[in-house]
Computed example of a mutant assay.
Amino acid sequence: MKLMDIYFSLKSDLDLVERRLLDEVHTSQYNLKKASSHLLKAGGKRIRPVFVLLAGKFGHYDLPKLTRVAAALELIHMASLVHDDVIDDAATRRGTPTVKAEWGDRMAMYTGDYIFARALVLLAEFSDVRIHQLLSESIVSMCEGEIEQIRDFYNKEQTLRTYLRRIKRKTALLLSISCTLGAMVADCPPRTVRLLERYGYYAGMAFQIIDDILDLTSTPKKLGKPVGSDLSQGNLTLPVLFALQHSQDAVRLRDLISREMTRAEVEEAVKIVKASGGIEYARKMADRYMEKCLDALYKLPNMDARNKLEGIAHFINERDH
Protein backbone atom coordinates (compact mmCIF):
# COMPACT_ATOMS: atom_id res chain seq x y z
CA MET A 1 0.00 0.00 0.00
CA LYS A 2 1.49 3.36 -1.08
CA LEU A 3 1.94 6.14 1.45
CA MET A 4 -0.05 8.63 -0.63
CA ASP A 5 -2.99 6.21 -0.74
CA ILE A 6 -2.87 5.83 3.05
CA TYR A 7 -2.87 9.58 3.59
CA PHE A 8 -5.61 10.08 1.01
CA SER A 9 -7.83 7.54 2.77
CA LEU A 10 -7.47 9.57 5.98
CA LYS A 11 -7.67 12.98 4.29
CA SER A 12 -10.94 14.19 5.78
CA ASP A 13 -9.83 13.23 9.32
CA LEU A 14 -6.33 14.68 8.83
CA ASP A 15 -7.93 17.89 7.55
CA LEU A 16 -9.75 18.14 10.89
CA VAL A 17 -6.43 17.68 12.70
CA GLU A 18 -4.88 20.40 10.53
CA ARG A 19 -7.71 22.82 11.29
CA ARG A 20 -7.34 22.02 14.97
CA LEU A 21 -3.63 22.77 14.80
CA LEU A 22 -4.30 26.16 13.20
CA ASP A 23 -6.89 26.97 15.85
CA GLU A 24 -4.55 26.01 18.67
CA VAL A 25 -1.66 28.24 17.57
CA HIS A 26 -3.97 31.24 17.16
CA THR A 27 -3.29 34.09 19.55
CA SER A 28 -3.95 37.81 19.68
CA GLN A 29 -0.20 38.37 20.04
CA TYR A 30 0.77 39.10 16.42
CA ASN A 31 4.43 38.05 16.45
CA LEU A 32 3.72 34.94 18.50
CA LYS A 33 0.94 33.95 16.10
CA LYS A 34 3.22 34.46 13.09
CA ALA A 35 6.05 32.47 14.64
CA SER A 36 3.76 29.69 15.90
CA SER A 37 2.12 29.16 12.54
CA HIS A 38 5.42 29.41 10.63
CA LEU A 39 6.52 25.79 11.13
CA LEU A 40 2.94 24.55 10.83
CA LYS A 41 2.67 26.06 7.34
CA ALA A 42 5.95 24.40 6.33
CA GLY A 43 4.09 21.08 6.48
CA GLY A 44 5.59 17.74 7.44
CA LYS A 45 4.74 14.05 7.32
CA ARG A 46 2.21 14.30 10.18
CA ILE A 47 3.13 10.72 11.03
CA ARG A 48 2.15 11.17 14.68
CA PRO A 49 -1.45 12.18 13.90
CA VAL A 50 -1.66 9.32 11.39
CA PHE A 51 -0.51 6.86 14.07
CA VAL A 52 -3.11 8.22 16.50
CA LEU A 53 -5.92 7.88 13.96
CA LEU A 54 -4.93 4.40 12.76
CA ALA A 55 -4.48 3.12 16.32
CA GLY A 56 -7.98 4.38 17.05
CA LYS A 57 -9.34 2.19 14.28
CA PHE A 58 -8.66 -0.88 16.45
CA GLY A 59 -11.27 0.28 18.96
CA HIS A 60 -14.13 2.76 19.20
CA TYR A 61 -13.23 5.40 16.63
CA ASP A 62 -14.28 8.62 18.37
CA LEU A 63 -13.02 11.22 15.88
CA PRO A 64 -13.36 14.36 18.08
CA LYS A 65 -11.30 12.71 20.84
CA LEU A 66 -8.75 11.28 18.44
CA THR A 67 -8.21 14.57 16.59
CA ARG A 68 -7.64 16.28 19.92
CA VAL A 69 -4.95 13.76 20.86
CA ALA A 70 -3.44 13.85 17.36
CA ALA A 71 -3.21 17.65 17.36
CA ALA A 72 -1.73 17.73 20.86
CA LEU A 73 1.03 15.25 20.01
CA GLU A 74 1.88 17.06 16.78
CA LEU A 75 2.12 20.32 18.75
CA ILE A 76 4.52 18.70 21.20
CA HIS A 77 6.60 17.52 18.25
CA MET A 78 6.54 21.00 16.70
CA ALA A 79 7.58 22.63 19.98
CA SER A 80 10.54 20.27 20.22
CA LEU A 81 11.60 21.17 16.67
CA VAL A 82 11.53 24.90 17.43
CA HIS A 83 13.69 24.33 20.51
CA ASP A 84 16.01 21.96 18.60
CA ASP A 85 16.67 24.60 15.96
CA VAL A 86 17.85 27.03 18.64
CA ILE A 87 20.15 24.41 20.20
CA ASP A 88 21.49 23.37 16.77
CA ASP A 89 21.72 26.97 15.50
CA ALA A 90 19.79 25.75 12.43
CA ALA A 91 18.96 28.26 9.71
CA THR A 92 16.54 26.08 7.73
CA ARG A 93 14.13 23.20 8.27
CA ARG A 94 12.30 21.44 5.43
CA GLY A 95 13.91 23.95 3.11
CA THR A 96 12.41 27.01 4.83
CA PRO A 97 13.90 29.41 7.40
CA THR A 98 13.50 28.29 11.00
CA VAL A 99 11.63 30.30 13.63
CA LYS A 100 15.05 31.01 15.16
CA ALA A 101 16.36 32.36 11.85
CA GLU A 102 13.30 34.57 11.29
CA TRP A 103 12.69 35.91 14.80
CA GLY A 104 15.81 35.11 16.87
CA ASP A 105 16.60 32.80 19.75
CA ARG A 106 14.46 34.44 22.41
CA MET A 107 11.31 34.51 20.29
CA ALA A 108 11.91 30.93 19.17
CA MET A 109 12.17 29.68 22.76
CA TYR A 110 8.98 31.46 23.80
CA THR A 111 7.24 30.17 20.67
CA GLY A 112 8.24 26.60 21.48
CA ASP A 113 7.02 27.05 25.05
CA TYR A 114 3.70 28.48 23.81
CA ILE A 115 3.11 25.62 21.35
CA PHE A 116 3.94 23.10 24.07
CA ALA A 117 1.55 24.78 26.50
CA ARG A 118 -1.25 24.71 23.90
CA ALA A 119 -0.75 20.94 23.61
CA LEU A 120 -1.15 20.53 27.35
CA VAL A 121 -4.33 22.61 27.31
CA LEU A 122 -5.75 20.33 24.61
CA LEU A 123 -5.00 17.18 26.60
CA ALA A 124 -6.29 18.68 29.85
CA GLU A 125 -9.81 18.00 28.55
CA PHE A 126 -9.26 14.26 29.17
CA SER A 127 -10.11 12.97 32.64
CA ASP A 128 -8.19 9.68 32.27
CA VAL A 129 -5.23 10.00 34.65
CA ARG A 130 -3.31 7.33 32.69
CA ILE A 131 -3.06 9.63 29.68
CA HIS A 132 -1.49 12.44 31.70
CA GLN A 133 0.81 10.12 33.61
CA LEU A 134 2.11 8.46 30.44
CA LEU A 135 2.61 11.77 28.67
CA SER A 136 4.29 13.43 31.65
CA GLU A 137 6.76 10.59 32.12
CA SER A 138 7.54 10.57 28.41
CA ILE A 139 8.11 14.34 28.24
CA VAL A 140 10.51 14.09 31.19
CA SER A 141 12.40 11.35 29.32
CA MET A 142 12.42 13.40 26.09
CA CYS A 143 13.89 16.40 27.93
CA GLU A 144 16.55 14.21 29.51
CA GLY A 145 17.38 12.91 26.05
CA GLU A 146 17.83 16.44 24.71
CA ILE A 147 20.16 17.32 27.58
CA GLU A 148 22.17 14.14 26.98
CA GLN A 149 22.46 15.01 23.29
CA ILE A 150 23.84 18.45 24.13
CA ARG A 151 26.24 16.89 26.64
CA ASP A 152 27.52 14.45 24.02
CA PHE A 153 28.03 16.92 21.16
CA TYR A 154 31.43 16.09 19.58
CA ASN A 155 31.96 13.30 22.15
CA LYS A 156 33.91 10.67 20.21
CA GLU A 157 33.82 8.19 23.11
CA GLN A 158 30.05 7.58 22.97
CA THR A 159 28.80 4.00 23.05
CA LEU A 160 26.11 2.28 21.01
CA ARG A 161 24.01 2.09 24.16
CA THR A 162 24.20 5.87 24.60
CA TYR A 163 23.15 6.43 21.00
CA LEU A 164 20.19 4.03 21.17
CA ARG A 165 18.95 5.57 24.41
CA ARG A 166 19.18 9.01 22.84
CA ILE A 167 17.15 8.17 19.75
CA LYS A 168 14.59 6.35 21.90
CA ARG A 169 14.01 9.58 23.80
CA LYS A 170 14.38 11.84 20.77
CA THR A 171 12.04 10.07 18.34
CA ALA A 172 10.74 6.64 19.29
CA LEU A 173 8.93 7.68 22.48
CA LEU A 174 6.61 10.17 20.82
CA LEU A 175 5.75 7.78 17.99
CA SER A 176 5.09 5.04 20.53
CA ILE A 177 2.89 7.38 22.59
CA SER A 178 0.96 8.35 19.45
CA CYS A 179 -0.05 4.73 18.96
CA THR A 180 -0.64 4.14 22.68
CA LEU A 181 -2.84 7.17 23.29
CA GLY A 182 -4.80 6.60 20.09
CA ALA A 183 -5.55 3.07 21.27
CA MET A 184 -6.33 4.15 24.85
CA VAL A 185 -8.75 6.88 23.77
CA ALA A 186 -10.46 4.33 21.52
CA ASP A 187 -10.86 1.93 24.50
CA CYS A 188 -8.84 -0.82 22.85
CA PRO A 189 -8.15 -4.02 24.83
CA PRO A 190 -4.90 -3.89 26.89
CA ARG A 191 -3.15 -6.40 24.61
CA THR A 192 -3.94 -4.28 21.56
CA VAL A 193 -2.62 -1.17 23.33
CA ARG A 194 0.64 -2.96 24.19
CA LEU A 195 1.15 -4.25 20.65
CA LEU A 196 0.50 -0.82 19.13
CA GLU A 197 2.89 0.71 21.66
CA ARG A 198 5.60 -1.75 20.56
CA TYR A 199 4.85 -1.11 16.88
CA GLY A 200 5.27 2.65 17.40
CA TYR A 201 8.46 2.27 19.43
CA TYR A 202 10.25 -0.02 16.98
CA ALA A 203 9.04 2.05 14.02
CA GLY A 204 10.40 5.14 15.76
CA MET A 205 13.80 3.58 16.35
CA ALA A 206 14.03 2.55 12.68
CA PHE A 207 12.78 5.99 11.61
CA GLN A 208 15.56 7.84 13.45
CA ILE A 209 18.31 5.50 12.28
CA ILE A 210 17.14 5.98 8.68
CA ASP A 211 17.10 9.75 9.30
CA ASP A 212 20.70 9.54 10.49
CA ILE A 213 21.68 7.56 7.40
CA LEU A 214 19.97 10.04 5.08
CA ASP A 215 21.82 12.95 6.70
CA LEU A 216 24.98 11.40 5.24
CA THR A 217 23.70 9.92 1.98
CA SER A 218 20.87 12.09 0.64
CA THR A 219 21.03 15.44 -1.16
CA PRO A 220 20.61 19.01 0.14
CA LYS A 221 17.45 19.37 -1.97
CA LYS A 222 15.79 16.33 -0.41
CA LEU A 223 17.05 17.06 3.10
CA GLY A 224 16.29 20.76 3.06
CA LYS A 225 19.74 21.28 4.67
CA PRO A 226 23.39 20.52 3.85
CA VAL A 227 24.52 16.87 3.83
CA GLY A 228 26.33 16.02 7.05
CA SER A 229 24.52 18.68 9.09
CA ASP A 230 24.29 16.41 12.14
CA LEU A 231 28.00 15.73 11.98
CA SER A 232 28.91 19.41 11.60
CA GLN A 233 26.77 20.22 14.66
CA GLY A 234 28.50 17.55 16.73
CA ASN A 235 25.61 15.10 16.74
CA LEU A 236 27.52 11.84 16.20
CA THR A 237 25.09 9.28 14.80
CA LEU A 238 25.31 5.50 14.40
CA PRO A 239 27.28 5.41 11.09
CA VAL A 240 29.80 7.89 12.50
CA LEU A 241 30.21 5.98 15.77
CA PHE A 242 30.81 2.80 13.76
CA ALA A 243 33.45 4.54 11.63
CA LEU A 244 35.21 5.87 14.73
CA GLN A 245 35.64 2.28 15.89
CA HIS A 246 36.22 0.40 12.64
CA SER A 247 37.47 2.72 9.88
CA GLN A 248 41.10 2.46 8.76
CA ASP A 249 40.95 6.26 8.77
CA ALA A 250 39.52 6.48 12.30
CA VAL A 251 42.42 8.61 13.54
CA ARG A 252 41.88 11.13 10.75
CA LEU A 253 38.12 11.13 11.42
CA ARG A 254 38.77 11.89 15.09
CA ASP A 255 40.97 14.81 14.09
CA LEU A 256 38.32 16.15 11.72
CA ILE A 257 35.43 16.09 14.20
CA SER A 258 35.57 19.35 16.12
CA ARG A 259 33.55 22.49 16.78
CA GLU A 260 35.68 24.31 14.19
CA MET A 261 34.95 21.90 11.30
CA THR A 262 34.96 23.58 7.92
CA ARG A 263 32.58 22.53 5.14
CA ALA A 264 35.47 20.77 3.36
CA GLU A 265 36.30 18.86 6.55
CA VAL A 266 32.68 17.80 6.97
CA GLU A 267 32.69 16.46 3.42
CA GLU A 268 35.94 14.57 4.06
CA ALA A 269 34.52 13.10 7.26
CA VAL A 270 31.36 11.98 5.42
CA LYS A 271 33.52 10.18 2.83
CA ILE A 272 35.41 8.34 5.59
CA VAL A 273 32.12 7.27 7.23
CA LYS A 274 30.73 6.00 3.92
CA ALA A 275 33.92 4.01 3.19
CA SER A 276 33.95 2.46 6.67
CA GLY A 277 30.80 0.35 6.24
CA GLY A 278 29.00 2.48 8.81
CA ILE A 279 26.05 3.14 6.51
CA GLU A 280 25.54 -0.59 5.90
CA TYR A 281 25.85 -1.33 9.63
CA ALA A 282 23.22 1.28 10.47
CA ARG A 283 20.94 -0.05 7.73
CA LYS A 284 21.10 -3.56 9.22
CA MET A 285 20.26 -2.12 12.65
CA ALA A 286 17.24 -0.31 11.18
CA ASP A 287 16.16 -3.54 9.48
CA ARG A 288 16.27 -5.38 12.80
CA TYR A 289 14.06 -2.78 14.45
CA MET A 290 11.67 -2.95 11.51
CA GLU A 291 11.41 -6.73 11.88
CA LYS A 292 10.38 -6.26 15.51
CA CYS A 293 7.94 -3.54 14.45
CA LEU A 294 6.23 -5.82 11.94
CA ASP A 295 6.27 -8.75 14.36
CA ALA A 296 4.19 -6.72 16.83
CA LEU A 297 1.93 -5.48 14.02
CA TYR A 298 1.15 -8.97 12.68
CA LYS A 299 -0.16 -9.99 16.11
CA LEU A 300 -2.93 -7.41 15.79
CA PRO A 301 -6.30 -8.16 14.15
CA ASN A 302 -6.05 -8.43 10.36
CA MET A 303 -7.92 -5.32 9.20
CA ASP A 304 -7.52 -2.27 6.99
CA ALA A 305 -5.82 -0.21 9.70
CA ARG A 306 -3.18 -2.91 10.14
CA ASN A 307 -2.52 -2.92 6.40
CA LYS A 308 -2.07 0.84 6.49
CA LEU A 309 0.35 0.65 9.42
CA GLU A 310 2.29 -1.97 7.51
CA GLY A 311 2.47 0.35 4.51
CA ILE A 312 3.83 3.16 6.71
CA ALA A 313 6.42 0.79 8.19
CA HIS A 314 7.66 -0.09 4.71
CA PHE A 315 7.80 3.61 3.79
CA ILE A 316 9.89 4.35 6.91
CA ASN A 317 12.36 1.62 6.00
CA GLU A 318 12.61 2.49 2.30
CA ARG A 319 12.31 6.30 2.26
CA ASP A 320 14.92 8.59 0.73
CA HIS A 321 13.83 11.85 2.41
Rank of each mutant, 00 (worst) to 15 (best):
residue 3 L to D: 14
residue 5 D to S: 13
residue 6 I to Y: 08
residue 12 S to N: 11
residue 12 S to F: 08
residue 15 D to L: 14
residue 18 E to W: 09
residue 22 L to H: 15
residue 31 N to K: 12
residue 34 K to A: 02
residue 48 R to F: 12
residue 59 G to S: 06
residue 68 R to T: 10
residue 71 A to T: 10
residue 75 L to T: 04
residue 76 I to Q: 00
residue 79 A to Y: 01
residue 81 L to Y: 02
residue 85 D to T: 07
residue 85 D to G: 02
residue 89 D to T: 10
residue 95 G to T: 01
residue 98 T to H: 04
residue 98 T to Y: 05
residue 99 V to T: 05
residue 102 E to G: 02
residue 103 W to A: 14
residue 107 M to H: 08
residue 109 M to R: 01
residue 111 T to S: 10
residue 112 G to Y: 01
residue 114 Y to W: 05
residue 117 A to S: 15
residue 118 R to D: 09
residue 118 R to F: 13
residue 118 R to I: 11
residue 124 A to Q: 14
residue 124 A to D: 12
residue 132 H to P: 04
residue 134 L to E: 15
residue 135 L to G: 08
residue 140 V to Y: 12
residue 152 D to L: 13
residue 157 E to Y: 10
residue 157 E to D: 12
residue 158 Q to Y: 08
residue 161 R to Q: 15
residue 173 L to E: 15
residue 178 S to I: 02
residue 186 A to V: 00
residue 189 P to Q: 10
residue 191 R to T: 15
residue 191 R to Y: 06
residue 192 T to Y: 01
residue 193 V to C: 03
residue 196 L to M: 03
residue 196 L to H: 04
residue 197 E to N: 07
residue 199 Y to Q: 00
residue 200 G to K: 02
residue 202 Y to Q: 11
residue 204 G to M: 04
residue 204 G to T: 04
residue 215 D to I: 02
residue 222 K to W: 03
residue 226 P to H: 07
residue 227 V to S: 05
residue 238 L to G: 07
residue 241 L to F: 06
residue 249 D to F: 10
residue 251 V to S: 10
residue 255 D to C: 11
residue 259 R to E: 11
residue 264 A to C: 08
residue 279 I to W: 09
residue 279 I to N: 12
residue 280 E to K: 14
residue 282 A to I: 00
residue 286 A to G: 01
residue 292 K to M: 14
residue 295 D to N: 09
residue 298 Y to P: 06
residue 317 N to D: 10
